[in-house]
Design a protein around this nucleic acid. Structure first.
Lengths: 203, 203
DNA sequence: AATTAAACCCCCCCTTTGGGGGGTAAGTAC
DNA sequence: GTACTTACCCCCCAAAGGGGGGGTTTAATT
């Protein structure tokens, strides 16, 4: 029997999930938390095989929390369960050690299949995310850490000069990054750049 | 007994909701749809007292769908149930005829209280949204239709000249709107303006 | 009926920033 | 060895944005 812990702030959803999993016969829910803080207190005690993790937690980002969990309990297999279907989020979760990724409108059987797969040490992506990750790479934008930092500063409204001051570079270098970001994202100008950054959760 | 229809693409959530409502004794679920298209086909037949409506539907915006439903079936009381906690979304839903608004991490009893209230013709906001709507109005930004249109065009990367051409105004007028938007949203420049627009769902 | 508020529209001047076009070069990961 | 990241530099001009100044129409409040 696979032991599962759930962390999600949507109480109605977790209730449904507990039912679904407990009645499946393949797994059993040994704990539910509604925030990362709650979870931290109990996780070491629960020691679940699989952790169903929402990305939109109220207190910390699920992306960061995944990293934290994997660092502390490498044996726990994290299965992301979220509404986000953006490449950047999936990619970050997987990079941070998640074993699988489900979108919340997935079918119930995909949840069970995902739990089984990650418990067995395999990776699992639900159908929608599998398609997403296999798209032509031109649509799946990935930025270097430095580029993400620049994009964040640009989105906050800093000018090239202000950014240069803040990260100790020449304004000309910042300009270079800016050009590159526009090119990479295919954005016409800063407005589109920022829109894409927020919409695609690049920052 | 209050009759309730649910429209939400998160299948696990709807299952939980059906249980919750049916077991409450105050209401009964007479139909579930996973998209607006599905719902349109059945709504006239179901004729529910209350429609639990998700805003993030896969096919159309819940905001638009609410308007559509209220136009066709004014007697159905729409209760929004969604993850969005942005002022602009709540405001639009209420303007489009919704009787209540719940965020998805609300407690189960708030869902039932909401159903009871809107079925009785009252309006209902869950605690979190009630607080949100009562914030000092400086934090709850509301734009005129024209301003929203301008903001949309700016976010799409059009220059003042291009916008002027498209909506048959002088570029100077566009400039005026731009200034006003920056002032109204307290944004330093276009980058911040666009970021706020996307994050606060103003467009 | 008069006032007010808000949305809506237009014009001037001026400075800073953004963005298009070229480059170069070190470090490191595959 | 070659591809990627990070880092830096030049010129040029169109656009954004800060500061003024006008004005109309429409709806609500007094």
């Amino acid at each position: 029997m696979i032991s599962v812990a759930i962390i999600d702030d949507h109480k109605i959803l977790t209730e449904g999930l507990v039912n679904l999993i407990d009645e499946s016969g393949i797994a059993t829910v040994i704990g539910v938390a509604h925030s990362a803080t709650d979870c931290r207190l109990s996780l070491g005690f629960w020691k679940p095989d699989v952790l169903l993790l929402d990305v939109g937690l109220p207190d910390v980002s699920g992306v960061d929390f995944c990293k934290e969990v994997k660092a502390q309990f490498p044996k726990i297999n994290v299965l992301a369960l979220t509404t986000h279907n953006e490449y950047a989020i999936v990619r970050q979760m997987l990079d941070n050690g998640a074993s699988g990724y489900l979108v919340k409108n997935a079918m119930a059987d995909e949840v069970l299949a995902g739990i089984e797969a990650v418990a067995a040490g395999r990776t699992f992506l639900c159908h929608e995310i599998d398609l997403l990750m296999k798209r032509p790479s031109s649509k799946n934008i990935w930025l270097s850490p430095r580029e993400r930092e620049l994009l964040r500063l640009i989105s906050e409204g800093l000018t090239n000069g202000e950014i240069a001051e803040q990260i100790f570079l020449s304004p000309e270098t910042i300009k270079g990054y800016r050009k590159n970001l526009l090119l990479k994202l295919g954005a016409k100008n800063t407005a589109v750049l920022v829109k894409m950054a927020v919409e695609q959760k690049l920052i």
